[in-house]
Design a protein around this nucleic acid. Structure first.
Length: 457
DNA sequence: ATCGGCTCGCGCAA
DNA sequence: TGCGCGAAGCCGAT
């Protein structure tokens, strides 16, 4: 049974007979998916068919072919896998509010289920759908181990305030998943369509200037293999290697977690089961659980999560005080995008992101803090960091990215430090500090070359 | 090499 | 009301 603390009603319509539809959004996988499990549970209880639907929006929130390719190839695997469970998959093209209500009517649905996403646009879609449909509409948090709406009803001040709640609740929520069952009946109203996957990829009206990458292969079977590889090969050294940007010490699972092709709960279960250095396991689980779920909490409760106005009062005050400080270097967004700063370490991090779709976690902090230092205002810095992150990172448009940028530029979830130019009391980082931690030149020399097509001017 | 101070707000203990 | 504490910081003193 799905824990009812995972479920949130998006409208007050009472139960109705009819098939169950899972509108898949953020959690694009068949296994280990609480939203799908709940939808099947409800369908079986009322002897009804179950269908999964995904709405592919025409411009996908400014995503590029890099993201679109990863998404669509992953969905192709979802459709194949669902078919083995006798669950049909429908791909609707258009905005949810334009295509989903009609689909629900045509299939004479009795219940609509979706997954959880705290970001502005998906939240707005949910609201529009809730206003239009005449069936009960339930959201299931399939992304967080401890459901975001349940663990806290406010914008947590720092990691330690959420960590306490995580430590307390984790044993209740970090449980094995029940098996998805072969579904006994198919919806009668509508034939399961053949989907022209290649045609969909080629016809997408997305930015074609950022190519797909080949170091990380999309889909939940590749995600599962990547998890096994990390636990078997690299988890043991995670604590000592994770902040060395050329050492492959990180899990590299974030693209899978972002697209929901891998469940964080599955990752946590497998890491807990593994034998290995306990310090590494603890350090990894801190990032996977506390940091990741803190980012969802931040976006859920702070509507201005990608904006200067969303910073803490002390941070806004100190940044305001230093608005007119002299900047030694000023760059345009195009100069940042093309890696044309005076700082070879910064340029290397930017090139890594452009070429691979994943900048090393430690470098993301340095990268964002330098954008603050080299632009005219914190507003401009946030806008540039968000633009570049969302365009090039495979895990762009994710709460983790917004929380990370707010941490680096706006001191969110961090503490004040001693006052200095431009930064005020926001934690400072510099080149010398990086050199103390790792061989900066080795990182710079190891970055693949990349080409920017049509940078912003 | 290691340690404390930097500075603010929280949440808990007293 | 006091006190401990906080993602990766830096800097200066020992």
């Amino acid at each position: 049974m799905t824990d009812n603390r995972r479920i949130f009603s998006l409208n007050a319509i009472p139960d109705k007979p009819g098939c169950v539809i899972y509108w898949m959004q953020r959690d694009q996988r068949v296994m280990d998916n609480w939203a799908l499990l709940y939808a099947q549970e409800r369908a079986l209880a009322s002897h009804q068919p179950l269908a999964v639907v995904f709405c592919l929006v025409p411009d996908f929130l400014g995503a590029t072919s890099r993201h679109y390719g990863f998404l669509v190839r992953g969905l192709e695997g979802v459709a194949e896998k669902l078919a083995k469970f006798n669950i049909p998959f429908f791909l609707l093209q258009g905005y949810p509010q334009d295509v989903l209500p009609r689909f629900i009517l045509e299939n004479e649905a009795g219940l609509l289920v979706t997954d959880f996403n705290p970001l502005r646009i998906p939240m707005d879609w949910r609201k529009k759908i809730a206003d239009q449909v005449t069936v009960p509409f339930h959201e299931v948090d399939a992304h967080n181990i401890i459901p975001s709406r349940f663990i806290s009803n406010k914008d947590e001040y720092a990691a330690y305030t959420l960590r306490k709640k995580v430590d307390q609740l984790l044993p209740e929520f970090l449980v094995e998943f029940p098996a998805l069952l072969n579904h006994p009946c198919l919806p009668g109203g509508r034939a399961v369509p053949e989907i022209d996957w290649t045609g969909i990829r080629l016809s997408a009206k997305v930015d074609q200037d950022v190519p797909e990458v080949d170091w990380v292969l999309p889909g939940e079977s590749h995600a599962s293999a990547a998890l096994g590889n990390f636990i078997g090969q690299r988890l043991n050294a995670y604590n000592s290697e994770r902040n060395i940007p050329y050492s492959k010490g990180q899990s590299d699972l974030s693209p899978y977690l972002h697209f929901g092709q891998l469940s964080a709960q599955r990752v946590a279960l497998e890491v807990m089961k593994s034998t290995g250095d306990p310090t590494s396991k603890t350090a990894f689980l801190e990032e996977l659980v506390v940091r990741r779920e803190l980012a969802d909490n931040f976006c859920l409760h702070n509507a201005q999560y990608d904006d200067f106005n969303g910073f803490q009062p002390w941070a806004k005050k100190t940044l305001n005080k230093h608005r007119d400080d002299e900047r030694e270097f000023l760059y345009t967004v195009g100069q940042f995008e093309g890696s044309f700063t005076h700082d070879d370490l910064w340029n290397a991090a930017q090139k890594e992101m452009v070429a691979t779709g994943k900048m090393h976690g430690f470098m993301r902090m340095y990268w964002a803090k330098k954008i603050l230092e080299w632009t005219r205002s914190p507003e401009e810095a946030v806008a540039i960091a968000v633009y570049l992150n969302d365009k090039y990172e495979l895990d762009g448009r994710d709460p983790n990215g917004y929380a990370g940028i707010a941490w680096a530029i706006g001191g969110t979830h961090d503490r004040p430090w001693s006052e200095r130019k431009i930064f005020g009391m926001i934690r400072y980082m510099n080149y010398a500090g990086c050199k103390r931690k790792f061989n900066a030149n080795k990182y710079i020399m190891g970055i693949p070359q990349s080409q920017i097509v049509n940078p912003k001017s």
